[in-house]
Design a binder for these strands. Structure first.
Length: 908
RNA sequence: GGGCGAAUAGCUCAGCGGUUCAGAGCGCCUGCCUUACACGCAGGAUGUCGGGGGUUCGAAUCCCUCUUCGCCCACCA
């Protein structure tokens, strides 16, 4: 009967919840992971699943090892992203957020967020996550908001927050500023337009190359490199901006690259960060006209030409409190109100008709887009709140170099270091409604301060106060996650116990956005204690075209669908086994069967091993330590030895975050070693009352061990089976049991070798049977001729195993094979001969043996060449040489035996 | 423009400082419903380890280079 996970998994999860095993034990050394809080924008897909399952494997592993495991769950309010989703919903109803007003809109978002938030947490449960649900947090919880505000005020008091007037990334769709990290680079095929500016004195023309002609009305001058001889005569002259006729000066600046375009650069300080810097150097007194409004249309902000839509949307927030209004109208009326890309087209058309467009070249360049809505970001001069980052970053970088935390895989080190070393100030204000309101207050008399409480009046002059309308960047709350979740700034018992934490598991794309900032916040606010010691950056789940799994691409897989079809354990198995350390996992959304069948198959196998084991074990089974060692057979000693190796390998792999390796090793133990060989070998002993005790104890021990080792990866089926093993106390749960320790007294390298020989004999006989197409029902007679290190006694102990698994009638040990047979040589020239009177075709047998002989001869030739090579013998490590010598001897013996065989059979 | 990663069986990937290392799972072929399992058992086939060069006694594994793909960073007007 096939295993059906559907009834099992929910029941098991409920048992864990009821028993409270996900809450950290009251005693013991803590092990803490804080979840990267999923955005409440949408339900999870399998890509998110990978991160969380990895965390669950680690937390379950440490929980089994006896640590007080705390995995803190929660969700992120995800400012822009969430506001976007709700605004989209409103748009479908034909409304905008301005129709609702701030308060009603925020209420509406809360409604949405409660729903998706719950679904997300539900999904985490379905994929088996053993989070401490009693400590679930949300970044907009009142307590959490208090932490955010505290941090803001402290940074303000320390002088690390300032109002900056500069060119920032503005999203015309989201109508907010973005940080550098939120404006993503995209390589784009664009055009380089060569535009001719007439000299004011009519003495000629100057050509300028630009990718963004629509910004030209905001030009305040042209600059060229002072070393550029071509333009020397133009310095100090003036040109007219085409189509508007506004006259602007020509000057020089070192920043201009002579080789790019025409070597003449138009300076648009309000719409280009680079131009802004140049303008401040070259024309410090000049105004910096904004010619593209907040909503992406051309025109002066707030001017009479502003469209109704812009007025409605309050698109002017970005430049709110600095009157950098140009005195003259710069944008010609025919372009006012046009979207910037429309305007670009129209400007180019008009330039063509006025013969002021010299040429258009194709030009590949990088365009920044909003990381939330993919709209091309508009660089825009504006006033925003910034955090000075250098003082925060420097000590963390130093701590990194001191080894206070590590990044896994190591290849991300450089990315982290480069970013931290070149860090720029962080724009934290967003012109949104959904988020933490910025706690900056300004009174009617211009006093300005940050406050922990909302003031009624100005503490200095008593005047009325107004709070900054903007909200904080969503990451300004997430960066406090490792300690705000535990109650900071209060010195709570939780904070004392669970900070600092240990491992952070997340996606590499938020290394800068989130991870580095958490490190900085931790160091700065938590007394120089970093929030974790290891950052494990996982791979990404992608489809077969290597595209990131995402809702918008339609290649997202809902984990709930996989669970319904194959079970949670199967899902986890595939994701954990599918990618090695930090590597991407490729899954095919169109072929879930191929993707998840291996996990399902393995769970089924485990289940059936369980059925067998449980069918064999009496109510009470002695512990392995209580078994008389003298009663152990070779097979017993072998599997016990393999078990020890498995414990060591699996533990080491998990400690190094090699989850796939741990899973594969345990798989091999359970399936290939325990099920394929030990269970098969041990069957007859189990039914014999007199001898059953020892194999029962061994079987119980090994199966229990396998379940424990596999539990972190496939927690449900292992718990279910473990519950059924003999000797379970009431309410005992595998999830909070203990991780196996290796028992060195059960290591047995001799058993490893000897049982390997037994397996070889069986495999050779099976192979011969298949080769000669002998029906499995036909019992055969075989003889082993032991030579070299092999002793008949080795096989004597497992004679019955060989007879049964090779489907023999009789097995002679160390006899002389009679009659016609098929031969196989192994070990140090030992032989197994299968009597096949009437079946063996002499020519066929000769070919088999001579093929084998040739193969050996060739290998031996290579080996001999190596061993007679003086430099190899002298330069290679001694133990390597010794091993090669041993190998050579064994092969030579095999070859000699084969040669004898060929001769005696009369093969040519 | 800078940096990083990947390229190994039909597919998805292991191979973690070098000499039975050419592997796993899925797929494929042959034979089996052998009293836990056909989501299974047994036996097989399949790769000049992306191209080229180098270091070495020896390279899928180290170095250089090229090609293809992907990712990250960057004030390329």
């Amino acid at each position: 009967m096939a295993y059906d996970p559907r009834p099992v998994e929910p029941a098991i999860y409920k048992r864990w919840l009821d028993a409270g095993v996900f809450q950290p034990r009251p005693e013991g050394e803590p092990y803490v992971i804080v979840i990267p809080p999923p955005n409440v924008t949408a339900v999870l897909h399998v890509g998110h699943g990978l991160n969380n399952i990895i965390q669950d494997v680690l937390i379950r592993f440490e929980r089994l090892r006896g640590r007080a495991a705390e995995w803190l769950p929660g969700t992120d309010h995800a400012g822009i992203a969430t506001q976007n989703v709700v605004e989209k919903q409103l748009a479908e109803e034909g409304k905008t957020r301005f129709d609702l007003g701030r308060e009603a809109f925020v209420a509406r978002v809360w409604e949405f967020v409660r729903e998706t938030g719950d679904t997300i947490l539900e999904q985490l449960k379905i994929i088996g996550c053993s989070c401490d649900w009693s400590r679930t947090r949300f970044t907009l919880d009142p307590a959490y908001s208090r932490s955010v505000r505290e941090v803001f005020v402290r940074l303000w008091d320390e002088g690390l927050i300032y109002r900056g007037h500069r060119v920032i990334h503005w999203c015309p769709h989201c109508l907010t500023a973005l940080s550098d990290e939120e404006a993503e680079h995209h390589e784009t095929q664009g055009n380089l337009y060569h535009i001719t500016y007439p000299l004011e004195d009519g003495s000629g023309f100057v050509t300028v190359a630009t990718t963004r002609p629509e910004t030209m009305f905001g030009d305040i001058g042209l600059v060229f490199n002072p070393k550029d001889k071509r333009y020397r005569a133009l310095k100090g002259k003036r040109v007219q901006i085409p189509l508007s006729g506004v006259a602007i000066p020509i000057a020089t600046d070192d920043a201009v690259d002579q080789t790019f375009g025409t070597g003449m650069l138009k300076v648009t300080p309000a719409h280009d960060a680079n131009d802004f810097d140049i303008a401040r150097r070259v024309w410090p007194a000049s105004e910096m006209p904004l010619v593209i409004r907040g909503d992406g249309t051309l025109g002066e902000e707030g001017g009479q030409e502003a469209t109704a839509a812009v007025k409605n949307k309050g698109g002017g927030q970005g430049g709110r409190d600095r009157p950098d209004r140009p005195t003259a109208v710069r944008v010609p009326p025919e372009f006012v109100g046009l979207d910037r890309f429309e305007a670009r087209k129209k400007i180019i058309e008009r330039l063509k008709t006025t013969a002021l467009l010299e040429k258009v070249e194709q030009h590949q360049h990088s365009v920044r887009r909003c990381y939330r809505c993919d709209t091309v970001v508009e660089p825009r001069l504006s006033d925003q709140w910034f955090v000075k980052m250098k003082p925060l970053a420097e000590p963390v970088l130093a701590a990194f170099h001191r080894g206070e935390f590590r990044i896994i895989p190591e290849r991300w080190r450089a990315t982290f270091e480069n970013w931290m070393a070149g860090i720029r100030d962080w724009n934290i204000s967003r012109q949104l409604w959904w988020g933490h309101r910025i706690p900056v207050f300004t009174c009617a008399n211009g006093h300005q301060w940050a406050d922990r409480e909302d003031p009624r009046s100005c503490p200095k002059c008593g005047a009325t106060v107004e709070q900054d309308p903007d909200v904080l960047d969503t990451w300004f709350s997430s960066w406090l996650w490792p300690f705000a979740t535990f109650g900071w700034p209060d010195q709570t018992p939780d904070l004392a116990r669970f900070y600092p934490g240990h491992t952070l598991v997340t996606a590499p794309e938020i290394l800068q956005l989130w991870v580095s900032r958490m490190l900085m916040a931790g160091y700065h606010f938590m007394d120089r204690r970093l929030p974790f010691t290891a950052v494990y950056l996982t791979g990404t789940v992608r489809d077969t075209q290597h595209r990131k799994m995402s809702k918008s691409l339609g290649n997202g897989i809902d984990p709930r669908d996989v669970v319904r079809l194959y079970g949670t354990d199967a899902l986890r198995w595939t994701l954990i086994g599918g990618g090695s350390l930090g590597a991407d996992v490729i899954v095919d959304p169109n072929d879930l069967e191929t993707t998840f069948a291996p996990g399902r198959n393995f769970a089924n196998k485990l289940w059936n091993i369980g059925q067998f084991v449980l069918g064999q074990l009496p109510k009470s089974v002695p512990a392995i330590d209580a078994v008389d060692r003298r009663s152990l057979t070779l097979a017993d000693r072998w599997i016990l030895s393999r078990a020890q190796a498995t414990v060591r390998d699996a533990t080491a792999a998990l400690e190094q975050f090699r989850l796939d390796e741990a899973a594969k090793r345990c798989f091999a133990f359970a399936w290939n070693e325990l099920a394929d060989w030990y269970v098969e070998a041990v069957k007859p002993r189990m039914s014999d009352q007199g001898s059953a005790q020892t194999p029962q104890a061994v079987l119980a021990y090994c199966f229990d061990l396998a379940l424990r080792l596999l539990h972190p990866v496939v927690p449900f089926i292992t718990e279910e089976l473990w519950q059924k093993l003999p000797g379970r106390k009431a309410n005992e749960l595998l999830a909070v049991s203990h991780w196996p320790a290796p028992k060195p007294e059960l290591d047995d390298s001799r058993a490893d070798q000897e049982f390997a020989r037994v397996k070889t004999v069986i495999e050779q006989i099976r192979s011969i049977r298949a080769e000669y197409r002998v029906s499995p029902k036909t019992r055969l007679n075989a003889t082993i001729v032991a030579r070299g290190n092999d002793r008949p006694a080795t096989f004597e102990g497992e004679r019955d195993t060989i007879v049964r698994l090779a489907q023999l009638d009789s097995l002679a040990l160390d006899g002389t094979p009679q009659g016609v047979g098929a031969h196989a040589v192994f070990g140090d020239g030992s032989e197994v001969v299968v009597a096949l009177e009437g079946v063996v075709d002499l020519t066929h047998e000769c070919r088999r043996l001579s093929d084998e002989f040739d193969r050996l001869e060739k290998q031996l030739g290579n080996l001999a060449a190596r061993l007679t090579n003086e430099s190899f013998v002298s330069r290679a490590p001694q133990d390597v040489v010794a091993k090669e010598r041993e190998k050579e001897k064994a092969w030579r013996d095999q070859r000699d035996v084969l040669a004898g065989k060929l001769k005696s059979l009369g093969c040519s």
